[in-house]
């Protein structure tokens, strides 16, 4: 398994690790059975993501994609964070091995799940913002079904 220098940098010095006690939005995706879980905490003021933290159980790529995804949305308006794609995370990390692409999908889903939580707390419907319910399982490459948790 060969990781890029950027991946190794974000794995060995992950940015934004931790939790936010009074978070405005919290999202958790993945499952332990498959070997990765990501949890994202958001602090949002005037529609701007002022702070973001993550906790991740998973491989090197799972930690690195979490770290990079949080960096990419920090300080951004919610509307822009919603546009974050897994591809943007992969590109920012100078690529991922093919078998690790699902980690970037998980990172995108984790961000969206946290924003969805924020929107619900605001009395809004995440579906109106184009957020589909995260499947809370592994990516499609994994054998386990969406209902299994």
């Amino acid at each position: 398994m060969i990781y890029s220098e950027k991946v190794m940098d974000h794995f060995s010095n992950p940015r934004n690790v931790g939790a936010i006690a009074d978070a405005d939005g919290v999202g958790e995706v993945g499952n332990a059975k498959c070997g990765d879980i990501m949890k994202i905490y958001l602090k949002i003021e005037n529609d701007i993501i002022t702070d973001v933290k993550f906790k991740t159980f998973g491989c090197g790529a799972a930690v690195a994609t979490s770290s990079m995804a949080t960096e990419l949305i920090k300080g951004k308006p919610v509307s822009e964070a919603l546009k974050l794609t897994n591809k943007a995370v992969v590109d920012a990390l100078d690529g991922l091995p093919a078998v690790k692409i699902h980690c970037s999908v998980l990172a995108e889903e984790a961000i969206k799940a946290a924003i969805a939580d924020y929107l619900v707390k605001q009395g809004k419907n995440p579906a109106d913002y184009g957020i589909k319910e995260a499947c809370n399982s592994c990516c499609s490459s994994c054998g386990s079904s969406c209902n299994e948790k």
Binding site: P14, A19, E28, I37, M38, K39, F54, K55, T56, F57
Partner: peptide
């Protein structure tokens, strides 16, 4: 473990 949501 400090960065694991399971450990939390």
């Amino acid at each position: 473990r400090d960065m694991s949501p399971l450990w939390e």
